[in-house]
Simulated assay, not measured.
Amino acid sequence: MFTRKTLKIAAIVAIIVCILGILLSLLVALTVDKMAFLQVLSWLILVYASYCAMKLTGYDIYEEDLKKIGWSIYALFVIFVLFLFIGLSLGPIIALVITARLHFQKTSIESWIKDNS
């Protein structure tokens, strides 16, 4: 569940799922509700979070760091399922929290690798 290969595949699937979220939000924004453009922004942020997760799975990191990445990826799937079945958009705040967590983890690992090579 938290192996490097599984998380890399899950991150790629999360990118695809977030792109589907963008397309669905765009469809809703263009046809029904103009406020759905905020959902599009949230999904764009989550695409970047998925990209960061995918990059992080390529590094040689500790098991506990892989678990943190895994829970973030699986949270993206839960957000998408809630969006599909309930129509719940958790908004940019949740997207920013998940993205910030993955982005700062990615930048700290990249700077550590740069300093130690």
Results as ranks from 00 to 15, higher is better:
Met1Thr: 12
Met1Lys: 10
Thr3Ser: 13
Thr3Cys: 02
Thr3Arg: 08
Arg4Thr: 09
Lys5Asp: 14
Thr6Lys: 13
Leu7Asp: 04
Lys8Ser: 14
Ala10Ile: 01
Ala10Ser: 09
Ala11Val: 03
Ala14Thr: 01
Ala14Cys: 11
Ile15Val: 14
Ile15Glu: 12
Ile16Pro: 00
Ile16Val: 13
Ile19His: 15
Ile19Cys: 14
Leu20Gln: 11
Leu20Asp: 12
Gly21Leu: 03
Leu23Asp: 08
Leu23Ser: 11
Leu24His: 11
Ser25Leu: 07
Ser25His: 02
Ser25Arg: 08
Leu26Lys: 10
Leu27Pro: 06
Leu27Ala: 12
Ala29Phe: 08
Thr31Leu: 13
Thr31Glu: 10
Val32Asp: 12
Asp33His: 07
Asp33Ala: 07
Lys34Met: 10
Lys34Glu: 13
Ala36Arg: 10
Ala36Phe: 08
Ala36Trp: 05
Ala36Gly: 04
Phe37Gln: 04
Phe37Gly: 07
Leu38Asp: 15
Leu38Val: 15
Leu38Glu: 14
Val40Cys: 09
Val40Met: 03
Val40Asp: 06
Leu41Ser: 13
Ser42Arg: 02
Trp43Tyr: 14
Ile45Thr: 15
Leu46Glu: 03
Leu46Trp: 04
Leu46Pro: 02
Val47Trp: 04
Cys52Val: 05
Met54Thr: 11
Lys55Pro: 03
Gly58Pro: 04
Tyr59Phe: 14
Tyr59His: 10
Asp60Glu: 11
Asp60Trp: 00
Asp60Met: 02
Asp60Cys: 05
Tyr62Gly: 09
Tyr62Val: 10
Glu63Leu: 13
Glu64Cys: 07
Leu66Thr: 05
Lys67Cys: 07
Lys67Asp: 08
Lys67Ile: 15
Lys67Met: 11
Gly70Lys: 01
Ser72Asn: 15
Ser72Thr: 08
Leu76Met: 10
Phe77Asn: 03
Val78Arg: 09
Val78Gln: 06
Phe80Cys: 01
Phe80Asp: 02
Phe80Trp: 03
Gly87Gln: 00
Leu88His: 00
Ser89Gln: 10
Leu90Glu: 00
Leu90Asn: 01
Leu90Ser: 02
Gly91Leu: 01
Ile93Pro: 06
Ala95Leu: 01
Leu96Met: 13
Val97Leu: 15
Val97Ile: 15
Thr99Ile: 00
Thr99Ala: 12
Ala100Glu: 04
Ala100Cys: 06
Arg101Gly: 04
Leu102Val: 02
Phe104Val: 06
Ile109Val: 10
Ile109Ser: 07
Ile109Gly: 05
Trp112Asn: 12
Ile113Gln: 09
Asp115Ala: 15
Asp115Ser: 15
Asn116His: 11
Asn116Pro: 02
Ser117Lys: 14
